[in-house]
Structures are given as structure tokens and as C-alpha cells.
């Protein structure tokens, strides 16, 4: 499976944020999307998720020689600030989610099995989501995105505010998910991108640029990324 982004352009008034982007993402990989503040990473995600209109561009999903436009149900979007319906308990949110996706679920697990998988404690499962900690909300957001099993998962700095234990748990979850999926992971933290992601993609000056990391040590790769960003920014 491949996600092909073609001629994507997006401007805010006179500022061109994404300039005729052409890029192909492949299944089974986690892509680390790196860029400076304001470089357009979230805008890129918002375009893919159809949250904002864009001037031009197509998104195509190519699977086994067959291609079709990318649909909403193909995408899961995990935001840096977790969004969950605060009036429901964790269990109720999962029940609702499983109810409306039941015809699509291949592997049916019980609600508690899902909670176990995401390391959500028994005593927290029947608490209102408004009383969940930041990390727990984040886990719930990730969990429903996993259950929906989208082909493409967009992750907008999802680990930035998590404690080290939860962050490590989430990293393992993401690694376990990459098979049969395309994961695009946006972050500011270079170490995180290098340790988690299979490919590094820079978004700078409105274009996507893949960094070839073959035969490079982590330090050499870091230097290369910094050089690329510095070079670009000084243009």
C-alpha cells in the first residue's frame, strides 16, 4: 500500500505554506516528519485529514495495483492535545466506538481486553474522561484510532507531553502498528524521530524532502538534518 500526495499547495492569504508537494509514503514504515516551528507540519496533516481547504492537490491510496482517492475512514489523526468526549467514561467511549464500528472489526476483543492492551488500570476504566490525566486521555485517543484501524495514521507530536513510562508504552504501540499501515509522525524532537521512525522527512519552505539515512550514524544523521534545516532557513 502507498499513499501518494500530488501537487499539494496550501496558502494562508499571501503566505505559501505548502508548495506543490509530491511525495509517496509506503506501508510498514513510520515516517518522522521534522520541521521548524511554523513550517507547516500541522497544516500538512490538516490537509490530509480534510480539516482545511487547500488550493490544489490529490491524495491517492494505491493498494495491490488498485488506486483510489484517500477517504476519511482511511485516516486516523492523533493530536498533541488529546480530544475525548469528557462526559463519557472510558468504558462508555469504547462501547460507543465499538458499537458503530462493529461491522468493520475483524478481531473482536472485549472492552477490558482493549484497556489491558493500552495499560489502562481497572479503577480508571469507569471514570469520566474529564477526570482522566493527560496521558490517559492520550492513550484513549490512540486506542480508538487503533480500533478504527485506519490505513494512514497521522500523529501530531503525540508523545511530547507524556511521562517517560507512557511515552515508552506508546512507542511500542506505534511500532506494533506499523505493519499494514502508514504512520506519519510529526515531532520537534530529533532523538525521538531517529529512535522511532524508519524514514526521516523534512518539511521546510513548503516542500517535503526525504533524508537518506543509509550508512549514517545517528550523529551524522543529526548533523545532516541540522545542516539541511539551517541551509534551507538561510536561503
Amino acid at each position: 500500500m502507498e499513499l501518494k500526495v500530488e501537487h499539494l499547495s496550501k496558502s494562508f492569504e499571501t503566505k505559501e505554506v505548502l508548495k506543490d508537494i509530491n511525495f509517496t509514503f509506503q506501508e510498514g514504515k513510520i515516517y518522522g516528519l521534522l520541521g521548524r516551528n511554523g513550517s507547516g507540519k500541522t497544516t500538512f496533516f490538516n490537509c490530509l485529514n480534510r480539516d482545511i481547504p487547500f488550493e490544489e492537490g490529490t491524495f491517492t491510496l494505491i493498494d495491490k495495483e488498485q488506486s483510489r482517492p484517500l477517504e476519511l475512514e482511511d485516516i486516523g489523526y492523533v493530536l498533541s492535545t488529546p480530544n475525548v468526549p469528557e462526559f463519557l467514561t472510558g468504558r462508555e467511549f469504547l462501547k460507543f466506538f465499538l458499537d458503530i464500528h462493529q461491522d468493520k472489526l475483524d478481531e473482536k476483543k472485549t472492552i477490558d481486553e482493549y484497556f489491558e492492551f493500552m495499560h489502562i488500570e481497572k479503577e480508571d476504566r469507569d471514570k469520566l474522561l474529564k477526570d482522566y490525566s493527560y496521558g490517559m486521555k492520550n492513550k484513549m485517543q490512540m486506542l480508538v484510532n487503533m480500533i478504527a484501524d485506519p490505513n494512514v495514521l497521522l500523529l501530531d507530536e503525540p508523545l511530547t507531553s507524556l511521562d517517560v513510562v507512557v511515552a515508552e508504552e506508546m512507542k511500542q504501540v506505534l511500532k506494533s502498528m506499523k505493519k499494514n499501515h502508514i504512520l506519519i509522525f510529526s515531532t520537534h524532537i530529533m532523538e525521538l524521530a531517529l529512535s522511532l521512525c524508519d524514514e526521516i522527512v523534512l518539511l521546510n519552505h513548503g516542500t517535503l524532502q526525504e533524508i537518506d539515512r543509509s550508512h549514517l550514524t545517528d550523529q551524522e544523521l543529526k548533523d545532516k538534518i541540522l545542516a539541511a534545516l539551517t541551509e534551507e532557513s538561510s536561503c
Binding site: R50, L72, I75, Y77, N83, P85, F87, I100, P150
Partner: peptide, 18 residues
């Protein structure tokens, strides 16, 4: 404030049928 604000960030929630 208490529901759609968070749910509209989920793609499935914006499908016409939902």
C-alpha cells in the same frame, strides 16, 4: 463544548452517515 469539540477531530465522526 462538551462533545463535538473533541469528536470532530475524529475522521469517522465527520462521515455523512454519522
Amino acid at each position: 463544548m462538551n462533545c463535538d469539540h473533541s469528536m470532530l477531530t475524529y475522521g469517522f465522526y465527520r462521515k455523512p452517515k454519522v
